[in-house]
Write a protein that binds this DNA or RNA. Sequence first.
DNA 1: CGAATTTGACCCGCGC
DNA 2: GCGCGGGTCAAATTCG
Length: 311
Amino acid sequence: MSSNEKNNPQHNSDPFQGFNRSTFNFFDDNNPCIYNQSAAPTPALDPSYMSFTGCLNEGSVDYYNSFSKAFDMSYSSSDVVSPMDDSATNTKRIDISAENSVGDSRNLNHNISENQSTINSSVSCSSNEDEDSSKAKKGSGDQGDDKSKKVNKATKKEKRQKEPRFAFLTKSEIDNLEDGYRWRKYGQKAVKNSPFPRSYYRCTSPKCGVKKRVERSFQDPSVVITTYEGKHDHHIPTTLRGHGAGVFSPPATAMGPGFPHEFLSHFLPSSSNDPSGNTNSMQYQQQQQLQIPDYGLLQDLFSPFTRSQAP
DNA sequence: CGAATTTGACCCGCGC
DNA sequence: GCGCGGGTCAAATTCG
């Protein structure tokens, strides 16, 4: 929590406040995609930016395939995510290992510093089985006085599956960006070489093991690095308390473009787990929307998601 | 008073 | 083997 967030009137009154001038890039190593979301149209006209649609056209693979790959976890554990090497975006290629994709902000900051006008976000797709299974279950439970916990952890270790990981660089004044899901903070750590701490959040939904890490770039404090890990097995809660409640349904549609975190969050629930069975249609809608070669129409991009989430 | 956050301690992996 | 850094836990604290 940071009391800062809680005391932040913007955060309380308008969860989208911080998103208005956000720039999101997401891509994988095969299909660099940048989605520039900005209230001001200027950045979209900046040649250094690639529009979302342009991104789709540019890449040989449609964006859905891109994300499919991401969720299919075709990468190996210590894979290197090479976000992009695209002169059109004036961005240098950097290699971000799964471990460092977000954890090591030095790489990210390096990337940022290479081009302050283009914020690169890595959708780092990594099979973190080893990392997750080993690291997810540590701490006091292993302290010898509770063997049952130890057993549970071992069990969980076996069950633990590969978790996709997605990192975003988001230009926002708000650290904890609202994405429609409810998160509980379970830790905070100082980041080496950075004055800004890294916060660890876990989805509050039962049985949903999705985690996210939030940290701020020390070289560009306006950039928030958010890493999602895992897939939500549920829809965005509609009973969010406070600022979250009801934000994403009608308002998002009315407001135009939704927040890309929300956008991505709709990818997170696996289709097989979707009880409503309409995921495919959603994906279809997404693809259809994305075919529109007009940046302005991106305002409609997220509407289908928002509508479909209504219970 | 329940829920969420804070924070120090702890564990583990990795590099040296 | 040791130290460092990342990640997690859980008691204490704060908040609504």
